[in-house]
Nucleic acid binder design. Structure first.
Length: 118
DNA sequence: CGTGTGACTGACC
DNA sequence: AGGTCAGCCACAC
């Protein structure tokens, strides 16, 4: 019996989904932060990929993931952008011009919280 | 196997 | 504050 390679794309996606699922309601995390917590250095782009690939019935809070600069990464004129903005606003996260104040809404998990969860 | 393309980032103007 | 750029990495062609 061989363990699945933790470096495989599938294994990485599963860890990414696990981290995203742990982002508290009312808070946001950046793609790079999610990658970091999932043990994937410099894997920000993979996070975007994993979110796009996440099964709908997984009900992943993908909308809580935004760019490190606080901006919604999707195209401002896209349906995805509008949906993300709406869902963020729905849980009290202020979105102004497609931007969120990371200092106010950014997720800052405590170290023990990280060790226990991931 | 080379190239182009992003739901990305950090560094530098 | 806002644009450019190189680095990044999985994927489509």
């Amino acid at each position: 019996m061989s363990e699945p390679d933790p470096r495989s794309t599938e294994a990485r996606y599963r860890r990414i989904w696990r981290v995203v699922a742990a982002i508290p309601e009312g808070q946001v995390a950046s793609y790079g932060q999610v990658a970091q917590l999932a043990g994937i250095a410099r894997g920000a782009r993979q996070v975007g990929r994993a979110l796009a690939k996440a099964p709908e019935d997984m009900q992943l809070p993908w909308f809580r993931v935004i760019s490190a600069n606080g901006r919604i990464a999707l195209a401002p004129d896209s349906p995805g952008f509008r949906r993300q903005r709406r869902q963020l606003l729905a849980e009290g996260i202020l979105v102004r011009d497609g931007r969120v104040d990371m200092r106010r809404f950014g997720w800052a998990p405590a170290s023990d919280e990280i060790l226990l969860r991931f």
